[in-house]
Design a protein around this nucleic acid. Structure first.
Length: 181
DNA sequence: TAGCCGGATTCTTATATATTGAATCGAT
DNA sequence: ATCGATTCAATATATAAGAATCCGGCTA
């Protein structure tokens, strides 16, 4: 697998209004952070260094920092179980949990200069200002993802709704680069 | 003036440059 | 002990997405 997942973000809705202050006191995990003067969301981690769950008063929440879809699913299950144990939500409360963003890293087989690449891909779909940021930003049309290309051939693919889309974006760029070599 | 709309806020993660700040080092 | 110097660590730069609340600015 040449395209590796670095981070996955997902969101869901508990369908219940929450008292974040009370929730902070009730949750058994010690990895909590709630400071309304700094940010209105309650930060929850089920384990140290694990994925971050940002919970809002509305009952909606975000999970970020997952290295795989498996971890994302487990984190969501664990969070829902913890809330069910507190009697805040029903056992089988469905949240319509959705993956919102998949961030991946990859490496190109061939390399071309970023200047040549920006022209080859099209100036309308690329942004390359090395004095502002060392990577070239590529927004391919028709593919729901954005790619960052670096001079050494390393890539960051972000904005994809799933791993398959990131894979498609990678293959697309790889073939484009192949044409330019 | 009220209300609405848009932008920044917070966080995560990989990536790579420049710059800043801090910290330690040899030397005085 | 203190001063230039060197080295390292950290931050900003840019990308995406979700969430809600803040702010400013604009219009009615």
């Amino acid at each position: 697998m040449t395209v590796e997942i670095a981070n996955i973000v997902g969101s869901g809705d508990l369908g219940v209004e929450l008292d974040l202050e009370a929730l902070e006191g009730d949750l058994s995990t010690p990895y909590l952070e709630y400071d309304p003067s700094n940010y209105h969301g309650l930060y929850v981690r089920l384990e140290e260094g694990g994925p971050l769950i940002t919970v809002y008063r509305s009952g909606k929440y975000i999970i970020s920092g997952c290295p795989s879809e498996e971890v994302l699913r487990k984190t969501n299950d664990g969070f829902l179980r913890a809330l069910a144990e507190l009697g805040i939500t029903d056992e089988a409360q469905q949240t319509g949990f959705t993956v919102q963003n998949v961030v991946c890293t990859a490496m190109l087989n061939e390399m071309v200069s970023l200047n040549a690449l920006s022209i080859g891909l099209g100036l309308e779909v690329t942004e390359y200002e090395p004095e502002q940021f060392p990577g070239l930003v590529y927004r391919p049309e028709g593919i729901g993802a954005v790619l960052l290309v670096f001079a050494n051939g390393k890539l960051v693919i972000t904005g994809a709704k799933d791993a398959e889309t990131a894979e498609v974006a990678y293959n697309h760029l790889q073939s484009k680069v192949q044409e330019l070599v």
